[in-house]
Nucleic acid binder design. Structure first.
Lengths: 205, 205
DNA sequence: TTGTCAAGCAAGCAATTGCTTGGTAAATTA
DNA sequence: TAATTTACCAAGCAATTGCTTGCTTGACAA
């Protein structure tokens, strides 16, 4: 038996992972790389390198590169939707509810979920139609829930218009922040969220 | 002379272009394809096909694929900046000036400049640092000019806040419209622009 | 001890990629 | 008419791509 033989120095420790979740490592690394260089600009070898694997090994966990993109994308939108629903469950008055929604959205978008959210917003269009339909369905659900929050704002007189276009414009201002936000900059996600509220909401009496 | 000989069916008319500007054809086709499939998802062969060339021919007009991206990008931002300055030269009162700026911006972003603007907004980050610096410089100039428009709005009492963040949020709402605008949909760029004005400006009188 | 399994490696294949080269027909200029 | 230039093609090269295959290793179970 060749148990002790090491044919060459390249054979590294196979049990390098104390934490068992290598699949999670892959989607986190993929998220970061897709964010940095785009889906098509990132190779399987990039991802494998980032988690100290050889280029064929990710295919043990995912059946294709596309499936990695799909997993990263849905991870992003799922967390956002869950967060939103948790905030709404608090049953605050309209204005406070809206502010909390925006803060939560931005905290994830600019914080721990940066990569996932980015990939969802900007790379999911590269999925094939079937997969994209799933993602689209989930973001439609997000918008639907968000829409109800806006409706209550109109009812309470804090917002003039909750039409589909107004909704898209507000969500646009929020989502675009991922483009310019600088985590070393002066303002944090919460401050930006509050600025947005001040921009679109009526002045408090 | 072999004027009339056609050695094989593949030899197509070499002088197929009545309009001489094949370079322009390439950047328009590249813009469209970069918009559809992203920079890295588009091959030189895709671009060449779109303008009825063979895969090596675009390199007669551009020294690299990167240079095509750079050209498409700067085309986008240059036009937008020129448009903005033309609007401002009209010297309208603050509110009318702002509305005109937004309408002009959106008319280009969602109309004839769709592809160029999109590439500028979403693909220019794939340029190398030197080229990206040029693009960044031009968009900074755009924001600077736009900022002056916002300052006048604050002075006239039509806007509460013209801070850097407020500016980014407003421009974000505008630019994000490229993501969801449907040219077959109910509302046109001008209507969307007016909705945005209604959203961020104080009510008249 | 023996067998099974999760996890990953080493090697490489077929296709695709950006780009180069040498040539050529037509238009333009001298 | 002769020389040059413009614009392009045909062919292909070297590198990279996503992915497959057969095998190894350590952990655990019977």
């Amino acid at each position: 038996m060749e148990v002790l033989s090491k044919p060459d120095g390249a054979s590294v420790a196979t049990t390098a992972a104390p934490d068992a979740n290598r699949r999670g490592d892959i989607i986190r690394a993929a998220g970061r790389l897709f964010h940095q260089k785009g889906y098509n600009g990132t190779t399987i070898r990039d991802i494998a390198d980032a988690v100290n694997m050889r280029s064929g090994s990710p295919f043990y966990h995912f059946k294709s590169k596309h499936e990695i993109l799909f997993t990263v994308t849905t991870e992003g939108i799922e967390v956002m939707l869950r967060n939103l629903e948790m905030v709404i469950a608090r049953q605050q008055p309209p204005r406070a509810c809206f502010e909390a929604c925006v803060i939560t959205h931005m905290n994830y978008l600019l914080g721990p979920g940066r990569d996932f959210a980015w990939v969802m917003l900007y790379e999911s269009r590269l999925l094939d139609p079937t997969e994209r339909a799933v993602v689209h369905c989930m973001s439609a659900r997000y918008e639907e829930v968000f829409s109800a929050v806006l409706d209550r704002l109109v009812a309470s007189g804090d917002l003039r218009d909750a039409s589909a276009i107004a909704r898209k414009l507000i969500l646009g201002a929020i989502n675009w922040s991922a483009q310019w936000y600088d985590e070393n900059g002066a303002s944090d996600p919460q401050a930006i969220a509050q600025q947005l509220c001040a921009l679109v909401l009526r002045e408090k009496n």
